[in-house]
Amino acid sequence: MSEITNLVKSLADKHGRYQESLLPILQGVVEQHKYLSEEAMVEIARELDISAARVFGTASFYSFLNTRPMGKYIIRVCKTITCMMHGKNQIIQELEKSLKIKLGETTLDGKFTLLETNCLGQCHKGPAMLINDEPYTELNPEKVREIIQSIKLNDTSKTSNPDLN
């Protein structure tokens, strides 16, 4: 059995094999693998005895359930109006420059993915962004450079996401 089959099985053991177990299982897979592969969704469908299209339909509804490979650090910049007026475009520009990727892309080493997101609830401290589960607020280009630099320095792992290649 593949690693993903085992993971799905253990998540199903933990959360049950009911319709309402679908979301926690999806979240569990994303937690471990950053995204839901086709294989993972078919396994979930098999485990819960529901259709694979339904698993996909549910996953595609939620922004935080990724259906394509993601980097180790997923950066989500708030795109809504308050952050927009506080200069989120410059923030994105800076991120694109220091990561050498465009919005929606992942760095070649599989470390960073750059996305936009809807409101993070940090309007009073905009512009804001989320890196994995960590919010960063009152950003400016310099601060963004420092944040990225410190992540790079602290993360010396070489392993890139094999799904990206």
Binding site: E38, M41, V42, I50, S51, A52, A53, R54, V55, F56, G57, S60, F61, T67
Partner: peptide, 20 residues
């Protein structure tokens, strides 16, 4: 009881889709 088609995405992007 096949569910080859499902509702996917949300809001204005909502559509009827097959698996992936």
């Amino acid at each position: 009881n096949i569910g080859a088609l499902s509702v996917a995405y949300k809001g204005e992007k909502m559509k009827i889709a097959s698996f992936f």
